[in-house]
């Protein structure tokens, strides 16, 4: 009678350890393998954050979002994270998409002023009207991949 109980306890302990190890080491979201929770235009997501940031945070943040928009420029000033800017709302704001350095060759292949589809994790909207020196506001997507 004691033996099966010991086996059960050991099995449970191994199971708990396995679960704990996997939880502690769970991987980051793989954007390439994730379905987009929302698909929208870059201008639409920018307007959503510009109009009501809290509501947009609740709706889009932490989710894999696919956006389509006009590529304004590439920003390669930080070699740890190549970035591109999509047109958001004129000069008022943009959608800033950050890529892993491994995606650099694909980023370089993009053509300015072309329409691009990007998938990434929405982090929120950086900048504010009170910080006058910073200029435009950016809706930020990270860990992006290029769809086309």
């Amino acid at each position: 009678m004691i033996r099966p109980i010991i086996i059960l306890i050991v099995a449970l302990a191994i199971g708990a350890a396995f679960y704990g190890y996997n939880t502690y080491n769970k991987p980051h979201t793989n954007v390439g393998e994730s379905e987009a929770a929302e698909t929208l235009l870059a201008s639409e997501i920018f307007v959503a954050f510009d109009t009501n940031e809290q509501a947009a945070m609740a709706l889009y943040s932490d989710k894999v979002i696919q956006v389509e928009g006009e590529l304004l420029s590439k920003d390669l000033s930080n070699d740890k994270e190549p970035q591109i800017l999509l047109k958001g709302n004129g000069d008022e704001g943009f959608v800033r998409c950050g890529f892993k350095p491994t995606e650099l060759s694909k980023v370089l292949a993009l053509t300015d002023s072309s329409t691009v589809k990007i998938k990434g994790i929405c982090m929120g909207c950086n900048g504010s009207e009170e910080l006058d020196l910073l200029g435009s506001k950016d809706v930020v997507l990270s860990n992006c991949i290029i769809i086309n």
């Binding site: 980051h28 950086n126 910073l134 930020v140 990270s142």
Partner: peptide
């Protein structure tokens, strides 16, 4: 200005 969610940790 910095977005808090955009801090990336080694572990998810």
């Amino acid at each position: 200005s910095v977005l808090i969610k955009d801090f990336e940790f080694p572990k998810a």
